[in-house]
């Protein structure tokens, strides 16, 4: 009995396998797509399909603006707006969606005022410089950013170069400068200033040259002429770059590198001056200053009102 049952099981298994295979073959025969199961078509392009997306987006303002931006240059105005200029038509238009955030001033308009003394020339004279005396500077700090400046000083020169044939003298004369500094660290701690600025300087002064010896070798003569006082006015510009840091309390110190050039100057018949008060030696384009500054805050009134409010609350 047992062998007959085993044979029966084998036959049933074979029949089942044949049935499954036959079913699979039938299903494949009914499917028109074959083994991939996907429909195959040939794409067709014509004029309509090629321009369809263009026509559909022709009225879309975002697409129109993008096209205008592509052929435009742009700049940012003082209100932070992005202004586009169409390079073809010249039209200007504002992209209202691209407004830049305007940086808010952290410090009040009338932030502080300062006075300073420039000790550069006195120090340099101690090291042999033959000109310069003293300068004073007054500044107002607006928003800790813009700092209009007025400078006034005195200059003097006396020079007898070794091996030369003259003594140059320029008596005590006054000079003035007017300009402004810009603090790049305007929203940072006002104890530290990093500034660039411009100045216009002016000085009326005089100079004379004495102890002159001129050797006319061919004629074998030595002449001793004099150049009497020549009255001159000169105006110049300065481009400055410098730092100022707080030393203690209201005192701070800083230096500036100054690049300068003559704007206008009178030209005496006896030659141009060697030294211009406030400017320095006329042939030099770079000079400097080192200033000790006393700063007076201008926002003390507002601070007092805050303190008064706090005191009132505490009393209640």
């Amino acid at each position: 009995m047992l062998p007959s049952i085993s044979a029966l099981r084998s036959k049933l298994a074979a029949i089942a396998a044949i049935s499954v295979l036959a079913g699979t073959l039938l299903l494949q025969a009914e499917s028109p797509e074959g083994n991939s199961g996907r429909r195959r078509i040939t794409p067709v392009n014509n004029a309509a399909t090629a321009t369809q997306h263009v026509n559909e987006l022709a009225g879309d303002t975002s697409v129109v603006n993008a096209a205008r931006r592509a052929r435009s240059i742009h700049y940012h105005d003082d209100k932070g707006r992005t202004v586009y200029v169409d390079t073809i038509t010249g039209d200007e238009w504002i992209d209202s969606a691209a407004v830049l955030p305007v940086v808010k001033m952290q410090y009040p308009l009338w932030h502080s005022a300062s006075v300073g003394v420039d000790i550069w020339d006195p120090v340099m004279r101690a090291f042999g410089q033959k000109y310069g005396l003293l300068g004073f500077q007054a500044q107002v700090n607006l928003h800790n950013r813009y700092m209009p400046a007025v400078e006034i000083g005195l200059g003097q020169a006396a020079n007898t170069p070794a091996g030369m044939n003259f003594t140059y003298k320029s008596p005590l004369s006054v000079w003035f400068k007017l300009g402004m500094d810009y603090n790049f660290l305007y929203n940072s701690n006002p104890d530290y200033l990093f500034m660039a600025g411009v100045r216009y300087g002016f000085s009326p002064f005089s100079f004379s040259v004495s102890d002159i010896t001129v050797d006319q070798s061919y004629w074998q003569e030595v002449l001793r002429p004099q150049i009497p006082a020549q009255h001159v006015t000169a105006g110049w510009y300065e481009l400055t770059l410098g730092l100022r840091v707080k030393l203690a309390g209201p005192l701070s110190a800083g230096w500036q590198i100054r690049y300068h050039g003559i704007l206008h100057q009178s030209h005496p018949a006896t030659g141009d001056p060697w030294y211009i008060p406030g400017y320095g030696a006329s042939g030099r384009s770079i000079t400097g200053s080192f200033t000790i500054t006393y700063t007076l805050p201008l926002n003390f009134l507002r601070k007092e009102s805050v303190v008064a409010e706090q005191t009132t609350i505490e009393q209640q």
């Binding site: 003259f166 001129v214 030659g271 060697w274 042939g283």
Partner: peptide, 13 residues
């Protein structure tokens, strides 16, 4: 005329 040329050249005519 005596003429101040420069601090390098001095004074001439």
């Amino acid at each position: 005329t005596p003429y101040f040329v420069s601090d390098d050249c001095g004074v001439g005519f």
